[in-house]
Deep mutational scan, measured.
Amino acid sequence: TPAEQLLSKCPWKEYKSDSGKPYYYNSQTKESRWAKPKELEDLEGYQNTIV
């Protein structure tokens, strides 16, 4: 779907730490963070409005 294509192009991906806590990693900037990036939230919100 178009929304899945947008998400696949987003540099932010969700991973799980050893303790199972989700964290987010940007493959372009090599940045990681615990809080979900706004860019990823926006894309997921867009995906939910299409489905």
Score class of each variant (00 low, 15 high):
Ser17Cys: 02
Gly20Thr: 03
Asp18Met: 10
Pro2Trp: 09
Glu31Gly: 00
Glu39Asn: 04
Gln47Cys: 11
Asp42Thr: 11
Glu14Trp: 05
Val51Ile: 11
Lys30Val: 00
Lys30Gly: 12
Glu41Ser: 11
Leu43Ile: 12
Asn26Phe: 00
Leu43His: 13
Glu14Ala: 09
Trp12Lys: 08
Pro11Ile: 12
Glu39Ile: 02
Glu4Trp: 05
Asp18Val: 08
Asn26Gln: 03
Pro22Lys: 10
Asp42Glu: 08
Gln5Gly: 10
Asn26Asp: 02
Lys36Met: 12
Ser8His: 07
Trp34Ala: 13
Gly20Ile: 00
Thr49His: 08
Ala3Phe: 13
Arg33Gly: 05
Trp34Ile: 13
Glu39Asp: 11
Tyr15Asp: 02
Ser32Asn: 04
Ala3Gln: 15
Glu31Tyr: 01
Glu4Gln: 02
Tyr25Gln: 03
Pro11Cys: 12
Glu39Phe: 00
Ala3Ser: 12
Asp18Glu: 11
Gln47Arg: 05
Tyr23Trp: 10
Thr29His: 09
Leu43Glu: 14
Glu14Gln: 06
Lys21Met: 07
Gln47Thr: 04
Lys21Trp: 02
Lys9Asp: 13
Tyr25Leu: 03
Ile50Gln: 12
Ala3Asn: 15
Leu40Arg: 04
Asp18Trp: 03
Asn26Pro: 01
Pro11Asn: 02
Asn48Gln: 13
Tyr23Arg: 03
Pro37Phe: 00
Val51Thr: 05
Leu43Gly: 11
Lys36Ala: 04
Asp18Thr: 10
Lys13Gln: 14
Leu40Trp: 01
Gly20Glu: 03
Leu7Thr: 10
Ile50Glu: 15
Cys10Ala: 06
Pro2Tyr: 09
Ser32Gly: 05
Lys36Val: 06
Leu40Pro: 09
Leu6Glu: 09
Lys9Leu: 06
Leu7Cys: 11
Lys16Asn: 14
Val51Tyr: 05
Glu39Tyr: 00
Ser17Ala: 07
Gln5Ala: 13
Glu39Trp: 01
Lys16Asp: 00
Tyr25Glu: 06
Ser17Ile: 03
Thr1Gln: 03
Lys13Cys: 03
Pro37Thr: 02
Arg33Pro: 03
Ser19Trp: 03
Gln28Ile: 10
Ser32Leu: 09
Ser27Leu: 03
Glu39Lys: 02
Asp42Leu: 09
Val51Gly: 15
Glu39Cys: 02
Tyr25Phe: 06
Gly45His: 13
Thr49Tyr: 06
Ser8Val: 12
Asp42Phe: 14
Gly45Lys: 15
Lys38Trp: 10
Glu44Met: 08
Tyr15Ala: 09
Tyr24Arg: 01
Glu39Pro: 04
Ile50Phe: 06
Gly45Arg: 13
Tyr46Trp: 12
Ser17Asp: 12
Pro2Ser: 15
Thr29Cys: 10
Asn48Val: 00
Thr49Ala: 04
Val51Ser: 04
Tyr15Ile: 13
Leu7Phe: 15
Gly20Cys: 02
Thr49Pro: 07
Tyr23Gly: 03
Tyr46Val: 14
Ser32Cys: 06
Ala3Trp: 08
Leu6Gln: 15
Lys36Arg: 11
Glu41Val: 10
Tyr15Gln: 09
Lys16Ala: 12
Asn26Ile: 00
Lys16Gln: 14
Asp18Leu: 11
Ala35Arg: 11
Tyr23Ser: 04
Gly45Phe: 14
Gln5Thr: 09
Glu31Arg: 01
Gln47Pro: 09
Trp12Arg: 03
Lys9Gly: 09
Tyr24Lys: 05
Leu43Thr: 10
Tyr25Cys: 02
Ala35Asp: 13
Lys9Ile: 07
Gln5Pro: 05
Lys16Tyr: 11
Lys21Tyr: 02
Glu14Thr: 01
Lys9Ser: 12
Glu4Arg: 10
Glu14Phe: 05
Trp12Ser: 07
Asn48Cys: 03
Trp34Asp: 10
Thr1Met: 04
Glu4Asp: 12
Ile50Arg: 12
Ser32Ile: 13
Gln47Asn: 07
Glu14Pro: 02
Glu31Val: 03
Trp12Gly: 13
Lys21Thr: 08
Lys13Ser: 11
Gln28Asp: 04
Trp34Ser: 15
Thr1Ala: 09
Lys13Trp: 03
Glu4Thr: 08
Ser19Ala: 08
Ser17Arg: 03
Tyr46Ser: 14
Glu41Ala: 07
Asp42Ile: 09
Arg33Phe: 04
Lys16Gly: 04
Glu39His: 03
Glu14Asn: 02
Lys21Val: 08
Tyr25Pro: 02
Ala3Lys: 15
Gln5Trp: 05
Glu44Asn: 07
Gln5Ser: 15
Ser27Arg: 04
Arg33Met: 14
Pro37Ile: 01
Ser32Thr: 14
Trp12Asn: 04
Val51Ala: 14
Lys13Gly: 02
Gln47His: 05
Ser27Tyr: 10
Ser27Trp: 02
Arg33His: 14
Ser32Lys: 09
Cys10Pro: 01
Asp42Ser: 07
Gln47Trp: 04
Ser8Ile: 02
Ser32Tyr: 12
Gln47Ile: 08
Glu31Gln: 10
Pro2Glu: 15
Pro11Thr: 12
Glu31Pro: 00
Tyr15Glu: 12
Thr29Ile: 01
Tyr46Phe: 07
Arg33Ser: 12
Leu40Tyr: 08
Glu41Cys: 05
Asp42Gly: 06
Pro37Val: 02
Asp42Tyr: 09
Tyr24Phe: 08
Lys30Ile: 01
Tyr23Met: 05
Pro22Arg: 06
Ala3Val: 13
Glu31Thr: 00
Tyr24Leu: 01
Thr29Gly: 01
Pro2Ala: 10
Glu44Lys: 09
Lys16Cys: 00
Lys36Pro: 05
Trp34Gly: 11
Pro11Val: 06
Trp34Leu: 09
Lys36Leu: 04
Ile50Pro: 12
Lys38Arg: 10
Thr49Leu: 06
Glu44Pro: 08
Tyr15His: 01
Trp12Glu: 10
Ser8Arg: 11
Thr29Arg: 01
Val51Cys: 07
Thr29Tyr: 01
Glu4Met: 08
Asn48Ala: 08
Pro37Cys: 01
Ser17Tyr: 04
Tyr24Pro: 01
Lys9Ala: 15
Ala35Ile: 11
Tyr25Val: 09
Asn48Tyr: 02
Leu6Ala: 15
Leu7Val: 08
Glu44Ala: 06
Pro37His: 00
Gln5Lys: 14
Ser27Glu: 09
Lys16Val: 12
Pro22Leu: 12
Leu40Val: 05
Ser27Ala: 06
Ser17His: 08
Asn48Lys: 11
Lys13His: 11
Glu14Met: 12
Leu43Pro: 07
Gln47Glu: 12
Thr1Arg: 00
Ser19Pro: 01
Asp42Val: 07
Lys16Glu: 02
Leu40Asn: 11
Gly20Gln: 02
Tyr15Asn: 03
Tyr15Cys: 03
Thr29Pro: 00
Gly45Glu: 14
Glu41Tyr: 10
Lys38Tyr: 05
Thr1Tyr: 02
Asn48Gly: 09
Lys13Arg: 11
Asn48Trp: 00
Ser8Gly: 06
Glu14Tyr: 02
Ser8Tyr: 06
Pro22Glu: 04
Glu44His: 08
Trp12Gln: 01
Tyr25Ala: 01
Glu41His: 05
Gln28Met: 13
Lys30Pro: 05
Lys38Asp: 04
Trp12Met: 03
Asp42Ala: 05
Pro11His: 10
Trp34Gln: 11
Lys36Thr: 06
Gln28Gly: 08
Ser17Pro: 04
Trp12Val: 06
Gln47Met: 08
Pro2Thr: 15
Glu4Pro: 10
Leu40Phe: 12
Glu31Cys: 04
Gln5Ile: 05
Thr49Met: 10
Ser17Phe: 03
Ala3Asp: 14
Lys13Tyr: 00
